[in-house]
């Protein structure tokens, strides 16, 4: 009996150097080196700092993954790598490394779409994905709704943020409230002590006219500004800022819009499975709100555990494994890193 393919995945699209190894849908290793601490004082990811860190971390992270999985490069059936979208200089480090490993070990190379990989990673936790499904991808760089007909051949974008990504809004509001970067975890924690109904912040692109043109699109820039104005007004009045209540009310506004539009997308597309991925999927409130809303319509919500939601190599390996199983054509060695890789492209 032929065993399932052993696939290695490399991820360097932002500030995490990730190497994951899977066999079929089974996760064997998920090694990560993060440069997040180096970016914290800048209040956001600095591309050149991230790229330098990827170069330093690549070989040690690869070795850790191989050790954890108890395999060698010779055992691997294919090497997958994030080809885009992401930071151009950062992507290039992973793509170049993947090619070198592929040349040295004589293995097929699969350049894959980072966003599709965020969807595919759920198969490591919950098994094969029922297709079609709707995916909500929310992170510091992306906020997208996708219709997934077939992960191996392409996904259909339904909507996108028209300004800030959801994770970006968390970072900016965290800074406003004096909370550390990245802003997702501290806001999540502060919100648990606050009242989500205490302040009514705007829900972007949910008005009747917005829904005509931007039914599945998001906007978080206005929300961020509304939080800033509210906080400033408090300060001008010489009143203390209730950080927990602001965090809870802001988080509620984000989760409310994300969940409402995701469920609407499922219902419109006649889809019964909603997958949530990306760093913001690690937010505890988003999981709860999405499940509550989806349950009313018999929609199943699948969210991988938080460590698989943020950027990692396992998600790339998961998509690579899916592509190998589907008999997809490997990428050529002149595969470019594509910082603006469209969602309709799963392999480069």
């Amino acid at each position: 009996m032929k065993s399932e393919p052993l696939v290695l995945g490399i991820e360097t699209s932002c500030d995490e150097t990730g190497v994951g190894i899977v066999r079929g849908h089974t996760l064997l290793a998920d090694a990560i080196a993060s440069s997040v601490d180096e970016h914290a004082r800048f209040g956001g990811v600095v591309p050149e700092v991230a790229s330098r860190a990827h170069l330093e971390a690549m070989v040690p992270t690869m070795q850790r993954a191989l050790d954890t999985a108890g395999v060698t490069l010779a055992d691997v059936d294919a090497i997958a790598v994030t080809a885009g979208p992401g930071l151009a200089g950062a992507l290039l480090v992973g793509v170049a490394a993947a090619k070198a490993y592929a040349v040295a070990a004589d293995k097929p190379l699969y350049g894959v779409n980072h966003l599709a990989a965020h969807v595919a990673v759920d198969t490591l936790e919950h098994g094969p994905l029922p297709e079609p499904a709707v995916a909500l991808l929310v992170s510091g760089g992306h906020s997208s709704l996708l219709l997934v007909d077939d992960l191996a051949s392409g996904v259909t974008p339904l909507g996108n943020t028209i300004d800030d990504a959801a994770g970006e809004a968390f970072d900016k509001v965290a800074r406003l409230l004096g909370l550390p970067f990245p802003g997702g975890p501290p806001i999540d924690r502060a919100a648990r002590e606050g009242d989500p109904a205490s302040i009514s912040f705007p829900r972007g692109l949910t008005g009747p006219r917005d829904l005509e043109r931007h039914r599945f699109d998001f906007s978080f820039s206005g929300l961020k500004t509304a939080v800033a104005r509210w906080v400033e007004a408090r300060q001008r009045a010489g009143e203390p800022v209730p950080v927990n209540d602001v965090a809870a009310s802001f988080q509620e506004a984000v989760c409310d819009v994300l969940a409402a539009k995701a469920v609407d997308a499922c219902r419109t597309s006649g889809v019964e499975t909603l997958v949530i991925g990306g760093g913001v999927a690690a937010n505890s409130r988003l999981r709860v709100v999405a499940e509550q809303r989806a349950a009313k319509y018999g929609i199943t919500v699948r969210v991988p555990r938080p460590k698989l939601c943020t950027d990692n190599g396992a998600m790339v390996a998961a998509l690579g494994s899916h592509l190998v199983a589907a008999g997809a054509q490997p990428s050529s060695l002149d595969l470019p890193a594509d910082s603006a890789m469209p969602l309709t492209v799963v392999t480069g």
């Binding site: 330098r52 170069l55 480090v93 090619k99 070198a100 040349v103």
Partner: peptide, 19 residues
């Protein structure tokens, strides 16, 4: 220039590592 330079060095490092 950094971006191109890193392509060569990560390539060399990965070749050395895997071989």
């Amino acid at each position: 220039p950094f971006t191109g330079l890193r392509v060569g060095l990560v390539t060399a490092a990965a070749l050395g590592h895997s071989l």
